[in-house]
Simulated assay, not measured.
Amino acid sequence: MTPQRIPVPTEHIYDTQARLRDIGPVVPIELSGGVGVWAVTTHAAAHEVLANDKVYARNARNYPALHDGSIPADWPFRPFIEADHMATADGLDHRRLRTMVNKAFTPSRVTALAPRIEEITAALIDDLTAAGDGVDLVPAFGEALPIKVICELFGIPEEDRAPLRAWTQSVINAGDQSVEAQLAMLGYLARFAERRRADLQDDLTSMLIKVQQDGEVTLSDDELAGMLFLFVIAGHETTMHLLDNAIVALSLHPDQRDLAIRDGLWEQVVEETLRRYPSVPMAVFRFTTQDTTLAGVELPAGAPLLLSLSGTDSAQHGADADRFDITRTHRAHLAFGHGPHFCVGAPLARLEGRIGLSALYQRFPKLRMAVDPSEVMYTSFTTSGPASLPVHLY
């Protein structure tokens, strides 16, 4: 089978995934630098991989090509693979780190954030009103809300948020500057953690440091910086796209926008956006720990896999899986993953989505795109959402 080169500049990643699924459930692809990997295209096969971290591991030590000189040191996907944090750990290491994080992201702590998220949202909407028609909602709302929430949650000063956003973009775009941006961001977060260690406060960074100091869970300084790296990036990048993708979908379906406003169906809007337009269309790498067979395809040990998380597989979501429909009876989607690495921040993302969209459309019930949908440019296939979203507010 001839490897398919991705990403394709003229093709949206959701369309790429559908095309690959038509070829087969497990398809050879080629990424930048001529690096060959396998795309897992169906819901069932991706679900199987996510559920079994013994055969399909996250840690890059299971990827020999990364260490034997086959892959160049500046390969732009290295930051997704080599970072030292919970998402790249397996087995006991993962459970150790997950236990610590679960103490921070308790249901009660997330629920308690609602009033502050409402305050931040209200202030941003006041700014939108002042900005007037034609405002770009990506920087003014979709990006601004989650980065403010996650940085407040971890105690990161406001003046440091712009460089954090810039580093995140470089890492996520997997371009020439991604490795350099990763190192710069990890360096900043290590220094920030050191400053916070001398001045503990009521934030999640201080909580992680206290857990580290108490010896309740073993956590190295590098792991602490890696944990902050993971949560700062995942805590705003994905929620930003959730908000922006929902706004695009509701602009394209004004009948559903009006239904959501009338009946308060914001939970349904969030879930349907996650299913149809997931912020992370392809899960970062998994590596086979042994020779195995997946969906009838034989894979050798050390094979790298990328998993399709788009909820358009008709075998899972029905013949109308491509249609955005907030009245859909939902079947389980993979937007937040599955199994041991299910996204610990999912409740927070859902909460921000419901609060943000509800407040936005309560103030601007006729909000719609100010450009033709075909003119909207989207970010890279690693995460997916509008790069710019000018709108009519009234």
Rank of each mutant, 00 (worst) to 15 (best):
S170Y: 13
E223S: 05
E223N: 05
M227N: 08
L164T: 03
A166Q: 15
E194I: 02
A184K: 12
Q201W: 02
T168C: 11
R165M: 12
F192G: 01
A166P: 06
V171L: 10
R165A: 13
Q201D: 05
L208N: 02
L219H: 09
A234N: 10
A184Y: 04
L208K: 11
D202Q: 11
S178R: 13
F231L: 15
I172P: 06
L200H: 13
V211K: 14
V211Y: 14
F192H: 08
L224I: 07
I233C: 07
G175R: 14
F192E: 01
L230S: 04
S206G: 04
L204T: 04
Q182Y: 11
D176N: 08
R196T: 02
G215H: 03
A225E: 03
L186I: 06
R197M: 02
D214M: 09
F229V: 01
E194H: 11
A193L: 09
L183K: 11
A162T: 14
Q212N: 05
S170R: 15
Y188F: 10
L208W: 14
I209A: 01
L200A: 03
G226W: 14
D214S: 13
A162H: 12
I172G: 06
I233A: 09
A234M: 06
L200F: 14
Q177Y: 10
W167L: 03
L204E: 01
